[in-house]
Design a protein around this nucleic acid. Structure first.
Length: 585
RNA sequence: GGUCCCGUAGCUCAGUAGGAUAGAGCAUCAGAUUCCUAAUCUGAGGGUCGCAGGUUCGAAUCCUGCCGGGAUCACCA
């Protein structure tokens, strides 16, 4: 249960019961009434701005209106105290019994606690990673992969029907380069001395096995085939090999897509799919032949004024019209995107989400324009831009030279710090803010490392249960039995912890709504912190220890609280894509 | 030059749908603890929320304009 949604209903009912009449007549507008946790916990458990929002329309002093509302809400058996504060906030403090009941629900729901129906089964497509199949994934891909994947998890948990999609850029010039690079490696595998890989081709060693595979399969026969045919074979083999490698890297990062969509498939059959998509746009009046003006404020020496087939995207919100067909008659990259988005639309998605690197910022407007043109504004499209990740090793920036083929691969990072640390840290920052990633820090076993701190909370929960089993000689603690004892929880720290747990459903919904999976990571850190604080209080004050050998009922109650913390930490970490360990090693 | 993102404590960043005295971690300072249930604990100081207007009962949050930092800008993908 989202307690804020619940109390929103109760508060609206209380407001209606006051039978307020707007001065201007008509219905009272309740849409601006907010029910939320107060900034400062000392104010209470629930706060509403209702009196302030309504006072003007009703023509009543906000504090006086607040007093009336507070008096009405004080009648609610779950409300221990209702007061008016500041400019007219109504603060509610809820009784312990209310919190015990919430905790009881959490124990029964277990892993489903926090799951929401907010999405109502709406079909959402999340496209992320979409790295070119020209080499292994490098760290630059990492953030988008994690953000996209965690976002997908989050949306699914919030009740959306999510499809995770990867667009394979397996057409175009860079794939020709890949094919030629592989042919070099092929000749090398046949024993030829190829010397240095020429400028402009991919120099990485990872293509050597592909060349060898070609040599093993074809021997020298490929050399005798027409160049075009050999290149095609090399490209096909290379794309398959690269995608296999990328899928392995993704699996190592716990990222799994539902659909891998091939750009090449759109070009198949002489580009029929793309042609028909462009025709569709043409019929809707969005296409013309013309010339683009040269970019302003930028000196281009080789600018050539050419006529192209253009998408009149300026009609639908873009800054400049976009080429669909180049002057040589071939399709632009964007032309394939037209067909691709049309395909997504025809598959029934209502919302398309693209997780892209910040360097693709310039692409956002044309995608938005395209969505409008294709669907007459029905298709909702959001682009999430992920800023750069800067790597550090002991405070020193890690240098990479892409030209020399030296880059830190995704696999390198996972192997060094572990999948969970990578995933958590990629979410421990708003995605539109740059992120510093220090190898040393994320493997540190201390409070300073949020990954460790959150996972340790999970381990500590299990540790408490192990201790309890031993001391009370109980093999397994039953959830019902724990639930039955919850009335024994009355320590302010315990109640505060329940309150934190009670925020989880609202957090899920608001993070999903805002498409901000990083909020999960921050919430988990806060929850872990509060749990550790309570544990430490027990460490200092014997009375507050979770396990009390001579009071099995109280122990059951406190274990119920620990169990709920354990469940939520596990649930949240699962959405992040990390494990909730039972012990730290 | 256009467009997009960012600007919050010394540093790194949160800030939940416009709410109350703007928060956390690190660092600094002052205490506690050498114990153990498992990887220390408690407290303090520190802010013109880049600047200036505007909307609002109320703005770090929304709008406009500037300043500063980054990304990007046809015929690539």
């Amino acid at each position: 249960m989202n307690i804020f949604a619940d109390f929103s209903d109760r508060i609206i009912n209380a407001v209606k019961a006051l039978e307020l009449k707007p001065k201007e007549g008509g219905e009272l507008d309740l849409s601006r009434v907010a029910v939320e946790p107060p900034r400062d916990p000392s104010h209470g458990d629930i706060a509403t701005n209702a009196a302030m929002v309504l006072s003007k329309a009703v023509g009543e002093n906000p504090r006086a209106l607040g007093e009336r509302l507070a008096a009405a809400l004080a009648e609610d058996p779950d409300v221990a105290e209702a007061s008016v504060a500041g400019p007219g906030f109504v603060n509610l403090r809820l009784g312990n019994g209310f919190w015990h009941a919430r905790l009881g629900e959490m124990l029964l729901l277990a892993g489903d606690y926090g799951r929401s129906k907010m999405g109502n089964g709406h079909k959402v497509n999340v496209e992320y990673v979409s790295a070119n199949p020209t080499g292994p994934m490098h760290v630059g891909h990492c953030r988008g992969a994690v953000v996209g994947d965690a976002l997908s998890n989050l949306l699914a948990f919030a009740g959306y029907d999510v499809t995770r999609e990867y667009y394979i850029n397996d057409a175009g010039a860079q794939i020709d380069v890949l094919g030629r690079s592989v042919l070099m490696r092929y000749r090398e595998a046949l024993g030829e001395d190829i010397g240095q890989i020429p400028e402009g081709l991919y120099p990485g060693d990872y293509l050597k096995p592909v060349g060898k595979a070609l040599a093993d399969e074809y021997g020298t026969k490929l050399l005798e085939r027409p160049a075009e045919e050999a290149l095609k074979i090399a490209k096909d083999t290379a794309i398959d090999a690269m995608m296999a490698m990328i899928r392995e890297d993704l699996a190592a990062l716990n990222v799994h897509h539902d659909v891998f969509f091939s750009e090449r498939s759109l070009h198949a059959g002489n580009g029929g799919t793309i042609r028909s998509a462009i025709n569709d746009l043409t019929l809707k009046g969005h296409v013309y032949k013309g010339k683009l003006p040269p970019p302003k404020g930028q000196v281009l020496e080789d600018w050539e004024d050419r006529e192209q087939t253009l998408f009149r995207s300026t009609d639908v919100g873009d800054d400049i019209d976009r080429p669909l067909i180049k002057s040589d008659g071939t399709f632009t990259y964007f032309a394939a995107d037209v067909a691709y988005m049309k395909d997504k639309y025809s598959r029934g998605f209502e919302h398309l989400i693209y997780v892209l690197g910040a360097d693709h910022g310039g692409y956002v407007k044309r995608l938005e324009a395209l969505a409008r043109a294709i669907s007459e504004g029905k298709l909702h499209l959001t682009v999430l831009l992920c800023q750069l990740v800067k790597l550090f090793r002991n405070g020193e920036p890690v240098r990479m030279s892409k030209r020399a083929g030296e880059f830190v691969t995704l696999r390198d990072v996972i192997d060094e710090v572990g999948r969970d640390a990578v995933r958590f840290m990629m979410l421990y920052r708003k995605s539109d803010a740059p992120l510093d990633f220090d190898f040393a820090k994320v493997t540190e076993q201390s409070k300073d490392n949020p990954v460790f701190y959150v996972q340790y909370a999970s381990a500590r929960c299990h540790s408490v249960f192990r201790q309890a089993s031993e001391q009370l000689n109980v093999r397994k603690f039953d959830r019902e039995a724990m639930k039955a004892a919850l009335h024994r929880l009355d320590d302010p720290g315990e109640i505060a912890l329940i309150r934190k747990l009670a925020e989880y459903p609202r957090l899920i919904e608001s993070a999903a709504q805002a498409l901000e999976p990083h909020r999960l990571a921050f919430y988990l850190y806060e929850l872990a912190n509060q749990f550790h604080v309570q544990w430490n209080r027990g460490s200092e004050t014997d009375r507050l220890r979770f396990v009390k050998v001579n009071d099995p009922e109280l122990t059951h109650a406190r274990l119920g609280l620990v169990q709920a913390v354990c469940d939520v930490v596990r649930s949240g970490l699962a959405l992040v894509g990390a494990d909730a360990p039972e012990e730290m090693r």
